[in-house]
Design a protein around this nucleic acid. Sequence first.
DNA 1: TATGAATGAGGATTCATTCAT
DNA 2: AATGAATGAATCCTCATTCAT
Lengths: 198, 198, 198, 198
Amino acid sequence: MEPRLISRREGIILTSIQIIHEAGFQGLSTREVAKREGISESAIFKHFKSKGELILAILNHFSQYDQAVFTAVKARKVHEVEAIQDFVETFVTYYENYPPITAILNTYDNLFSDKEFNEKVKSIFFARLNFLQELVDRGVEAGLISGEISSEALADTIDGIIRLMSLKWRMNNFSFSLREETMKTVNSILKGFTFLNH
Amino acid sequence: MEPRLISRREGIILTSIQIIHEAGFQGLSTREVAKREGISESAIFKHFKSKGELILAILNHFSQYDQAVFTAVKARKVHEVEAIQDFVETFVTYYENYPPITAILNTYDNLFSDKEFNEKVKSIFFARLNFLQELVDRGVEAGLISGEISSEALADTIDGIIRLMSLKWRMNNFSFSLREETMKTVNSILKGFTFLNH
Amino acid sequence: MEPRLISRREGIILTSIQIIHEAGFQGLSTREVAKREGISESAIFKHFKSKGELILAILNHFSQYDQAVFTAVKARKVHEVEAIQDFVETFVTYYENYPPITAILNTYDNLFSDKEFNEKVKSIFFARLNFLQELVDRGVEAGLISGEISSEALADTIDGIIRLMSLKWRMNNFSFSLREETMKTVNSILKGFTFLNH
Amino acid sequence: MEPRLISRREGIILTSIQIIHEAGFQGLSTREVAKREGISESAIFKHFKSKGELILAILNHFSQYDQAVFTAVKARKVHEVEAIQDFVETFVTYYENYPPITAILNTYDNLFSDKEFNEKVKSIFFARLNFLQELVDRGVEAGLISGEISSEALADTIDGIIRLMSLKWRMNNFSFSLREETMKTVNSILKGFTFLNH
DNA sequence: TATGAATGAGGATTCATTCAT
DNA sequence: AATGAATGAATCCTCATTCAT
């Protein structure tokens, strides 16, 4: 019996993400997960009480580094504009190295309409958005970011770019560098609203 | 027998959009459509060969005005920046007056992973994006928009804002004015990259 | 309005036979008939009370010439062995000129298991068999056919050959001459049990 | 929980044959199978991927002994004419002891028109026919069977008799001895074309 | 942990048929 | 004669889940 590098539970989660990536959220069935994991369907229920719990676990997996990223970005002693760039770059780099995960980012609405995942999705969505806004607010206070645009608007814009770019990336079959293109666009926007010599 | 204002076919499409709006894309079943429309399930198949055809019809409904909007925006004799604003405002006004339709906008990824809808979704997505970019390009040529940002980046940013705002709107239970908030954000961005006295 | 050569009723029957020929008995649906006839499904029910009646009409069409053939074969002033050959040749010539009709011949069992067609199928089946046996009996009486084999056995054998050959013909994609091959086989058998100089 | 004598899979196959026997091929539905087997419809799909696979399994069941019979008939050290009689007797004895199986023999055409079963049916049909012809050929070579009739014709005749008799048996409600009647007819034919003292 | 066998509810779709026009 | 719109029952099949082993 060879030891597994990741636990069965973890394996099921990763397999599920892969399935959503390939076949969409409706393609995720216990049958398909079992087949790909090489276990029986009933085995899945030893690791997750229900499919809903599995989905919740997927969402947790998806957002598992969020708090750490928030903390790290804040901790690094750079000015606020660089912090925003850091934040964006961290995510798109992660996505670029793990394309299937962008399927989750783009399936928010589907999950949102289900009461069971409602809260979770909302909290992930707004945590990121709020953190971004917080960074912008500090930048404004520090006099680095223009007051011409509200912090909410700029945060929405940046988050919108990340989401748009990852959707476009998926639609283009991952044929460009998500990181480079997203950073280029975000930096262009930032340049328009900051007082820095880049 | 009172005459119907809209055809059964149209009714099924609108009902379907309503269901996707409320229950997500996976909530759309012929059974549910039939129940809400007050007809039998088999009746649906007299109007649509298959569920896939119904979904295609939904996508066509969703994008039915796109070409007309593109043409109208171009036709109106305003400068390019106003044209962009027009474009954005047309869509968000439509969305604000018909919230369920935003469910379709946010279900792209789900539809995209199905071969049957693949192309259609892609074409709608890129038609809008390309039109926006075209407007930006003209604005740059006309000397109204700064060359500091690439036309692609600005188009992506604006489309990203529209998409982000409509998702946020959905997550906030439609409790703010989509039109106002989106226009405010888009205008802030435009102000940063145009040479106009607003 | 161009006049039709055959009546709608007749057209529906012929179309149905064609469908059974191509898609098997289970392929026969009112939908398919309507599509091929270029009429609505409901129109079919103006010509036939029910699908069962249509099937009965198909069986009647299939056996419409039987009595006439029996009479004609008897009427012709030839000896009994030639009469048997006549009988067989008449049918296989008809089949060869109208391959789809063999689908009906081969679908007996399917129809037989339905109470509605039970009797009809049985009567067609036994009428042919009994007529053949009658011919054989006469041949024996006339001293043309050997008493070494019972009339029933010879009739069964000949009918068996017709049925086997038409099934084989279908399975071989109608790629040989049903008439020639069947006559050759039947004649070989007859030669073994008759006292004639062929 | 009492142990079952036959597996569920086998049970489903036998039940299916019984249904085809009673209600014809179109009477075979997963619903009816489930009802008779005393299980749920979905349970069927744990044993067979699809209804088509079940039908294929039925055909395999129907022809499961064919190769063994061919081998056994050849192995038995009897002369070729007896081998033919052996062959025929083996099948009709099997049919007589298990009447429902004749429903499958008589449903060839129906199955043949479906691409999925096309080949299987053809291969069963021609394997039997070819084996018979092979036996006849040897009989001719051994000088036991007359060259007056071609081996193909005699094989077709004998197979035709088997098929005709089993259809007649079905139509007569199994009210005569299939084995006896068939053997009588086949033997009569053989007598006409062999040089043996029976 | 795992499985195999099972299930009830629901999935899309096809069926023959009806009825008002 | 014909249609268009509809239907209820049945079609095959998938779903997440349970339970005894």
